[in-house]
């Protein structure tokens, strides 16, 4: 189980990396490598060239940019998990990281790499969507910003172009009083999720305001549950409402039959987890 041969570039600054990426060839960016290298060891991925961005220390940051927290491409999961800024503004991210791989993998793996890998059972693509994060994509001479909800197109499929680098994730600080919930079922903690449900919301005059819900591990990519959000908006929270919403989401889900459980099981998980997540979010909302 050894990777096939590739040529290796290790640029020292972002411009050099972008220039290399602009040239032709079957190229992959090597950041944390915690998803890419296993695939290379299995020879499921056989890139001709790797551009190692680990020397781009300019991208290693977690920074308060006023209304947003900006996370650079080289920020490791471990650093984000233990960051005081993240714990203060996005406790859901810190909590979710307990469910994402294990310490040694989090020491190397990066949030941006995880988002670009876009595994359908990965947690952060769902969380970035409910936090309404924006992703900064750079290529030679230009940059663009894309909303997280527009970035994920399918399993292992994103809106990034071959010559682009995801250099930064910008997460707006949530409104005061926002509550959150996170629930996941996997075989073991740290495994890819069979079903992850995440939500944030506020309570205004006893009613649900600005609910944002997303799910991973069920459909072909993590996505917001817009219909469920609409059904909850300005409603009084309660068990029967949550169960009804969960039923609707479960019925609309399109899970693939797999060894991780039948479609019926995935729907059961939605019915079990979504009300718990909403309850937690309501409890935490102030």
């Amino acid at each position: 189980m050894k990777p096939s041969a590739f040529s290796y570039e290790c640029p020292n600054d972002l411009q050099a990396a972008l220039a290399l990426l602009a040239s032709d060839g079957d190229t992959r960016i090597l950041a944390g490598g915690q998803s890419l290298v296993p695939m290379m060891n299995y020879r499921l991925a056989q890139p001709e060239r790797l551009i190692d961005i680990n020397r781009l220390s300019e991208l290693d940051y977690i920074r308060d940019d006023g209304g947003v927290i900006a996370i650079g491409a080289l920020a490791r999961h471990a650093a984000i998990k233990s960051s005081d800024l993240i714990k203060e503004h996005f406790p859901i991210v810190a909590e979710a990281y307990d469910w994402i791989a294990h310490a040694a993998v989090r020491n190397r793996g990066t949030l941006c790499g995880n988002l670009c890998h876009a595994d359908a059972a990965s947690e952060m693509p769902a969380i970035m969507q409910i936090l309404e994060a924006e992703l900064v994509l750079l290529k030679v001479g230009t940059s663009r910003v894309i909303a997280a909800q527009d970035f994920f197109l399918g399993t292992y499929e994103t809106a990034i172009a071959a010559d682009e680098i995801l250099t930064e994730v910008r997460i707006p600080k949530p409104a005061a009083g926002t509550g959150w919930g996170f629930e996941e079922v996997a075989m073991r903690r740290g495994d890819y999720a069979w079903c992850t449900v995440v939500a944030t919301l506020r309570i205004s005059d006893g009613k649900i305001a600005a609910p944002r819900i997303a799910m991973a591990g069920v459909n072909d990519c993590a996505a917001r549950l817009r219909d469920a959000e609409a059904a909850l908006t300005e409603q009084t929270p309660g068990a029967s409402l949550f169960d009804a919403v969960a039923d609707t989401v479960a019925d609309a889900a399109t899970p693939a039959e797999s060894s991780a459980g039948s479609a019926a099981y995935k729907r059961d998980l939605i019915r079990a987890l979504l009300p718990r997540v909403l309850n937690d979010a309501v409890t935490r909302a102030t």
Binding site: Y8, C10, Q34, V37, N54, A78, A103, A104, N107, R108
Partner: peptide
């Protein structure tokens, strides 16, 4: 295969030596 690289435990099967 965990080893300590610059103070952190990492999977040495998921890094290339040149890194």
């Amino acid at each position: 295969c965990n080893v300590i690289v610059d103070g952190q435990a990492v999977r040495s099967c998921l890094m290339f030596a040149v890194q």
